[in-house]
Simulated scan of single mutants.
Amino acid sequence: MKKRLLAGMLTASLVVLSLTGCGTKDASTSGSSGGEEGKVYHIGINQYVEHAALDASYKGFVDALAEAGYVEGKNLKLDYQVAQGDMSTAQTIATKLVNEAPDLILGIATPSAQALANATKDIPILVTAVTDPAGSQLVASNDAPGGNVSGTSDLTPVKKQIELLKQLVPGAKKVAILYSSAESNSVIQADAAKAALKEAGMESTDATVSNSNEIQQVVQSLVGKVEAIYAPTDNMIAESMPTVAQVANANKLPVICGEGGMVDNGGLATFGIDYYELGKLTGKQAVKILEGTAKTADMPIEYLPDEKCTLKVNADVAKELGITIPEELQQSK
């Protein structure tokens, strides 16, 4: 395993540091001038729910297209749709987008990606904010997708996140894993967290929800039973992070999160990827497809390069919980 280096500074409310070791692959886009002269390219977007991480992915995607010369209102038409966390709505959006026969469709988050993959086998589909496309049956394999779907993975360094939990909450012996059992990406991360917790000498317990109305009650039920909560990059939990934080922080339960937006909304800390950069990486893939220099079948699932991973600690939450941020996290250079 490569040696990882942290670098950063502690602000009044957040610590943001660079972390290596989040991804294994990189990509760069070819030179571009916005495609064929006079052509307006049509891209449909199916985003599962609105929250900081997924919104950042979409923004990064659009910005990467603009940097390559594809500008909405000029030579690019974007049809951006959000399913508001409802799978049936995601399926309806997928059908609508496919019927419009765009040049490319983007699926942001696993449920929307799955809805698109089920709706067409012909139109090129890129996915982002999907932990394991192969595990979610979107592609034949992450290295060789083999069909009309490719994209980028938001696989997070779960083991490093559990190490961070142990560093910030050294007395933790039992940790709850809070996630939606209906999200395959969350199940994959939960399984990885269970293995990492066991390796770190801690016991784990599942705290699953099937809808957002259950979250407050489930978090409340953990009080007095666990010393910390681990929440992966679960879309339902991310969207409801203020509710999670309100209950957890009031009861002195630290929450280690899967991504930075969850920390901004009340979680204690994370080692996570930058979803804006993940979206940009997906946008670079889109440019290759629009220009005809690559096909989804031959385009491996890509991961952010090492330097795009970050450590974020919410200092305000740490103070509220009575947790001292270790010196090495404050002063790492």
Rank of each mutant, 00 (worst) to 15 (best):
R4V: 15
R4F: 04
M9H: 11
T11V: 00
S13G: 06
L14F: 15
V16Y: 02
S18Y: 07
T20Q: 09
T24F: 14
K25A: 10
D26M: 12
T29D: 01
G31H: 09
S33N: 15
G38M: 10
G44W: 00
I45Q: 00
I45S: 01
Q47F: 01
Y48P: 01
V49P: 01
V49R: 00
S57K: 06
G60L: 04
A66T: 11
G69C: 04
V71F: 12
N75G: 15
D86C: 07
M87S: 14
Q91C: 08
T92L: 07
A94M: 02
A94W: 01
T95E: 09
T95R: 11
K96D: 11
L97M: 08
D103C: 06
I105Y: 06
I105K: 03
G107Q: 08
A109H: 13
S112K: 13
A115C: 15
L116F: 15
A117Q: 02
D122E: 09
D122H: 12
I123M: 05
P124E: 14
V127I: 14
A134W: 12
A134N: 03
L138W: 04
A144S: 12
A144F: 10
G147S: 15
N148G: 06
N148Y: 13
N148S: 03
V149W: 09
T152W: 11
S153D: 07
K160V: 14
Q161H: 02
I162F: 01
E163C: 03
L165D: 00
Q167L: 06
P170Y: 12
A172S: 10
A176T: 15
L178A: 05
A182I: 15
E183T: 09
S184C: 05
S184Q: 13
I188M: 04
Q189A: 04
A190F: 08
K194F: 14
K194M: 11
A195Y: 04
A196H: 02
L197P: 02
G201F: 10
M202C: 01
M202V: 05
E203Q: 13
A207N: 08
N211C: 02
S212V: 15
N213V: 14
Q216N: 10
L222R: 04
G224P: 01
G224D: 04
K225R: 09
E227T: 04
E227K: 02
I237P: 03
I237M: 06
A238G: 10
S240L: 04
V247S: 02
A248P: 01
A248N: 01
A248H: 00
N249I: 03
A250N: 10
K252L: 10
K252P: 08
P254N: 05
V255C: 03
V255N: 03
I256A: 03
G260E: 14
G260R: 13
G261W: 11
M262E: 15
V263C: 08
D264Y: 15
D264K: 14
N265E: 12
G272M: 05
D274R: 00
Y276R: 01
L278D: 00
K280M: 02
L281G: 00
T282W: 00
G283F: 00
K284Y: 00
K288T: 10
E291W: 10
G292Y: 08
Y303F: 12
L304M: 14
P305Y: 08
C309H: 15
L311W: 12
E320V: 06
E320L: 07
T324I: 10
I325C: 07
E327K: 10
L329K: 04
Q331L: 10
Q331T: 14
S332K: 09
K333V: 15
